[in-house]
Each structure stands twice: as C-alpha cells, then as structure tokens.
C-alpha cells in the first residue's frame, strides 16, 4: 500500500478535494480579514476606506465585549458540566435492563432532533413564561411567586436550554462507550470486593474518559457559537447580560450595520476559539492518544 508509487498516486487523487476545501475556507476568512480593516458601514455604501486596527480597538474596548467573552465561556463551561455529568448519569440509567427500554431511549434522544429555534421557543413560551409557563403554574400551585427566568436569570436560562438540547448527544456517546465495557472486568471487580461506587470510580469512569473527551471537544466547538437560542429568547438582553461573542458580532453587523466592526469581532472570535481549542487539546487531548 505504502509504496512510493501508490503514495504519489493517492496525493494526485486527493489534490482536487484539498484545493476545493482550501478555497472554501480561505476565501471567506480572507474576506473577513480584509473587511475587518475597513471602515465599512452598510448605511454609508461606497464610503469604505482603510481603517487600520481601529475596528479591533473599538471592539476590544467595548464594555459589551468583556461581558460577551464571559458569557461565551460561561455557556460553554455550564453546558459542558450539565451535559457531561447528566449524560453519565442518564447513560448509566439507560444501560440498566428495564421495562420499555427502546421507547425510553428514543424519548431521551428526541431533544437532539428538535431545531434550536423551536426548542428555545418551547422553553420560552411553555416552560419559562412567567404567566403561562409550566414553571409559573408549578410555583403558583405550591404558593410561590412565579419567577421570570429569562429576565432575572437570562444566562442561566440559556445554559439550561442549550444543555437540554445537548444532553442527548452526550448521553448517546457515553451510553455506547458504557456498553463496550467488558462484562468480565465488572465481574472481576465485583469479586475483588469493589462496591457499585468503587466500580464506577475505578472502572467505569476511566473507561469512559475517551468518550467524555470526545463529548467535550465536539460540544465545545458548537457551544462557542450558540446563537439561535439567544436570538429567540432573550435577544442578548436584558442589556448585554446574555450576549455572547457570536451574538455581539451579529448585533454589530446587522443591528448597527457595521460590517467592519463585526468582521473584526469575527476574527477575534476565531482567535479565541483557537486559544480555547489549544488549551483543550493540551488538557484532555492526551486521552485520545494511545
């Protein structure tokens, strides 16, 4: 397989797709970088001029930027915590033999199949609405004041909604990993006197470490750019309390029509994502090797 001839042939065969992919990625990136150095406002077409780094300066010194940065990380960390811990718990539950296992598994997977906008609207109107929502009814039923989740705890609410959507993904990956745990190892641990908790700590968790890594890596990529859920529920507000970087870029470009500033924000988001990826790989990427 790996003769010189086959390798150069393989390279020639791959070249078109590599070129296509490269163009696919390079062109938008190059254009974004180019725009980020222009003063480019949609309200003043034809007035574009070279702006140097001023777009970056404005974006980085905007007080909303730090709030957005914090919110972005809070969403990533919060959702990861909920989905990984909840996912492990659910996977272990679903792994137990029980009545109606097939149906329960489908039900658990269902949230993943629902579009983010729809899911967010369902949560906003049917659960978290302070007048008609289920939570409000429950609160009233036990004699409490209904709580306006989206106004009083907007970031928390968004974390919960997004976590609800990603929980099935985590559960599914962890469940398949769990099912590949060797039965004899569990029995050996049982004979060695390990109780359920020790078996979980010493056997299950190390066995799941690779799957957990995959869940964290994949989810982080998507969680850095949560958007639809924010748009349809809180619109980034109140104020900028639930604005993340993606939403800030959107607001810059399409609410303030500042394409140059938004492009600068986009590039900053890309750089940040790379920093996060770098640290993630340093921290947990090792488990994927070997």
């Amino acid at each position: 397989m790996a003769t010189l001839h086959t390798r150069s042939a393989a390279r020639a065969m791959m070249a078109p797709s590599v070129l296509l992919l490269l163009a696919w990625m390079i062109v938008p990136l190059a254009m974004t970088i180019y725009f980020s150095f222009l003063r480019y406002n949609l309200l003043m077409p034809g007035m574009e001029e070279w702006a140097g780094f001023s777009n970056y300066r404005y974006f980085l010194t905007d007080p909303a930027f730090f709030q957005a940065l914090f919110n972005t990380l809070a969403i990533v960390v919060g959702v990861l915590l909920i989905t990984v811990i909840g996912g492990i718990a659910l996977a272990i539950l679903l792994d137990q033999p029980m009545f109606g296992q097939g149906i329960v598994r489908i039900l658990v997977i269902a949230p993943f199949l629902i579009m983010p906008t729809v899911a967010a609207l369902v949560w906003k109107n049917m659960f978290m609405n302070p007048v008609n929502g289920l939570f409000a009814h429950l609160a009233k039923a036990v004699g409490l004041q209904p709580y306006d989740f989206l106004n009083n705890a907007p970031l928390m609410s968004i974390i919960v909604i997004v976590a609800w959507q990603w929980l099935p993904f985590a559960t599914l990956i962890l469940l398949t990993a769990l099912q590949s745990l060797d039965e004899e190892q569990k029995e050996a641990a049982q004979m060695d006197g390990a109780g359920a908790w020790s078996r979980f700590i010493y056997l299950t968790l190390p066995h799941l470490s690779r799957a957990i890594t995959v869940v964290i890596l994949i989810q982080t990529i998507f969680l850095l750019s949560v958007f639809a859920e924010i748009l349809v529920t809180t619109n980034g507000g109140p104020g900028t309390q639930s604005t993340n970087l993606t939403f800030l870029v959107y607001a810059q470009a399409l609410l303030q029509f500042d394409v140059g500033g938004a492009s600068a924000g986009g590039i900053i988001a890309v750089i940040l994502a790379n920093i996060v990826a770098f640290f993630l790989m340093r921290m947990i990427g090792k488990t994927l090797e070997a």
Partner: peptide, 14 residues
C-alpha cells in the same frame, strides 16, 4: 473466593 477469567479481565487503565 478469587477468580481468574479466560479473558484475564485485567483493568486496562491500571
């Protein structure tokens, strides 16, 4: 009792 399994059933990450 101690058991030795056919697949050894060693704990792979230890």
């Amino acid at each position: 009792l101690s058991m030795v399994f056919q697949s050894y059933a060693l704990y792979p990450h230890m």
